[in-house]
Design a protein around this nucleic acid. Sequence first.
DNA 1: TTCCACACTGCGGTTATCCACAATTGAGGG
DNA 2: CCCTCAATTGTGGATAACCGCAGTGTGGAA
Lengths: 204, 204
Amino acid sequence: MSNPATTPLTHIVDDDEAIRDALSWLFRTRNVAARAWASAEDFLAAWQPDWQGCIVLDIRMREMSGLECFDALLERGNTLPVIFLTGHGDVPMAVGALKKGAFDFLEKPVDDNALVDVVIRALATNARHQANQETQATVATRLAQLTPREHEVMQLVLAGKFNKVIADELNISMRTVEVHRSRVFEKMGVRSAVELAQLLSPRD
Amino acid sequence: MSNPATTPLTHIVDDDEAIRDALSWLFRTRNVAARAWASAEDFLAAWQPDWQGCIVLDIRMREMSGLECFDALLERGNTLPVIFLTGHGDVPMAVGALKKGAFDFLEKPVDDNALVDVVIRALATNARHQANQETQATVATRLAQLTPREHEVMQLVLAGKFNKVIADELNISMRTVEVHRSRVFEKMGVRSAVELAQLLSPRD
DNA sequence: TTCCACACTGCGGTTATCCACAATTGAGGG
DNA sequence: CCCTCAATTGTGGATAACCGCAGTGTGGAA
């Protein structure tokens, strides 16, 4: 049994066993690791925030619908790309799902190649997102290690101020500024203010 | 006549005069500056890349359809947010438009308040995009003023390297590095490598 | 030929940054 | 009481960055 936290899986969520089997088979023939779920409830009960991969989610299911499942996932902070499949979609439903962040919205019957293409793109998107999350987590961990004073000095360093100016503003000696500055660089794993600025540059 | 390059306008493109009039009136009552066009061709003939505002675009029109107009706008590098209106949309059409970057996709009859809300959000999005474009244009202009050698030195400065190391790598004197470095800061309008790094930090 | 832009360099002097070594004080926890 | 951590500071010495002043050489355009 693959571990969804480290091996990206395409999760097929559909109450129709024939569809689940067909999609499982399709993905297997395309070397896409997949796992099938017979209901949205089953999937949600198992879902973990650190899973990697993507979700192929049928809209119309017996108990909980795909859209309800999607809303629940969003509430839990899901970041897996969600591809909706539906036999009877309408425009507001599709538009609403996409604007809530759904990755795609496809109508059945769906072309095998088209679906696999979408899944592969979704997996790539998830991989990029994961890499970005890890970087941000590392930065956040390092920032959390700074003492309040170090953090304060760091902001002024990032504002491009001289040590002498920082010392004046904080009413401390230049030597103290140097100590804090040096410790900031050490804790943030950088060697210069340029590297620090680049590490902490705002990203959309 | 307002100048669309500087005054944000909501462009109503619909071959149905009654709709145009109704929407013009609606926007006027909500203090949203608008301009109506009887055909996609008319709008496209007038369109300029520096216009500000947004576009409310009907899909089904006599000659050129809204979707064709949208494709033409994309080819021309349009950045105005596009809100589609349709009386008979289907899911693939809606999904396709949104994935090509349409701002929204609404079905007629559309609720006045809902439409105005969407338009106001689109206008805000356009304003943010415009501000970002201006910043990027300023940076690009400044970068274009650098000599090739200055640009080369700048890259090494941004890599956090000492002047001495840069001099070694480029086989020039340290004084020359200092000269280039100083001129880079001057032309880029910054006072330190930190500011330069922040000005040029990658953005998605 | 002259002028200009670009690239380059040396000298001397100043300011900024960095840090080893050493030390003190205060707060909090075991 | 002892220990750890955070904040602070001084001394002395070294390296890095900055720049005025002065100058040279090359290539291209007028």
